[in-house]
Design a protein around this nucleic acid. Sequence first.
DNA 1: ACTTGTGAAGATGTTCACAGCA
DNA 2: TGCTGTGAACATCTTCACAAGT
Lengths: 210, 210
Amino acid sequence: MRKGKGRISRSTIGRLPLYLRCLAQLSSQKVWVVSSEELGRLAGTNAAQVRKDLSYLGEFGTRGVGYDVGKLTSHLSKTLGLNRKRYTVVVGVGNLGSALLKYKGFRKKGFEIVAAFDKEPGKIGKRVGGVAISDINQIEQALKGKRVDVGVITTPASVAQAVADQLVAAKVPAILNFAPVSINVPKQVSVRQVDLSVELQILSFYLNRM
Amino acid sequence: MRKGKGRISRSTIGRLPLYLRCLAQLSSQKVWVVSSEELGRLAGTNAAQVRKDLSYLGEFGTRGVGYDVGKLTSHLSKTLGLNRKRYTVVVGVGNLGSALLKYKGFRKKGFEIVAAFDKEPGKIGKRVGGVAISDINQIEQALKGKRVDVGVITTPASVAQAVADQLVAAKVPAILNFAPVSINVPKQVSVRQVDLSVELQILSFYLNRM
DNA sequence: ACTTGTGAAGATGTTCACAGCA
DNA sequence: TGCTGTGAACATCTTCACAAGT
């Protein structure tokens, strides 16, 4: 299936979305060819890194010229599995969960939010951002027979593990966790953790030494 | 100033906040001593990693026993610069910015939001989460003479660089950027980038191969 | 007996420098 | 000539395994 050489490394995968974003920007500016030098500058890395990363996908550049923006975009999209729609659910409709439900940018990128869940009776049945809110204890039943690609956890830390367990039971294969706690899931489930306090604390560390 | 051996590595710094969070949890459960084994399990890593990381701060464990939760907490806090209040501003009061302004968790951890900025005349002068919203074009003037430790950018990508430039002009030494674009700042300014679409796309990649 | 602290080994990631090709 | 693709060198990060300390 994969065109390129060896397995794509973890850190390369983390940069592919950045390249894709830069390519979209170039495309909107009617730029059709880009060098590794320029792409590296835009993505916040360097030319050697770009060439090494892209070489894992196969040989897409033209020596002496650069990379075709359209061709590279289409290949990165395919590699990242963005050529198909991804169905997403949000669990926890607090401040952050509501913000995600209202945000229109995900749908544009192929991530459609198809369900939302919360604990609070006052919220259940209401709609936020066009998505109906269901009972958080009904996750498995509500998702039975439906394909869901990603579950987003925006609950307090105290219930995050229980939510993760329900998502796993509902066969959701990937989880994006915003709760400030590390969750345990079977190793075939992918998890990404985003913790805003952790980011602030890391910045705080660097503040000390400047 | 630093007690430990060599310089603390970048990846170690990223884990220190996780250890701190686990220690807080242990402390709330009246656990006063923890082994590297247990702390590793809680933080989602392993015992060897914990010992290596903590050894950079000095020798805080007791052989045959483990680490004193209180002593370690206090040392990690000091190392991360969390023993003092950090003043924060939020630029961009859309869905995400509003969520951050309303979220009470940051203040609890010592990060106080002291100002917010937006472009929209209808929002300027209003309050969200107890913080008054000012004109986004007045950042430098509004912050003149005030100490701000961290600037949080929650604007659309199109204006993120201009906002970053204003924050830099206002001598804000650290930036947390949620806009989906990489911003350029002088190298003495610390930047952390959080991009939700990137996280979803990374998950999408792993979905393909399972 | 038990758990830390750490050199050394191993794995992964980044940069260099140049051959290969348009 | 100019820019990609890539082995090799370098750097960083993780894991191992055991000496050292209580």
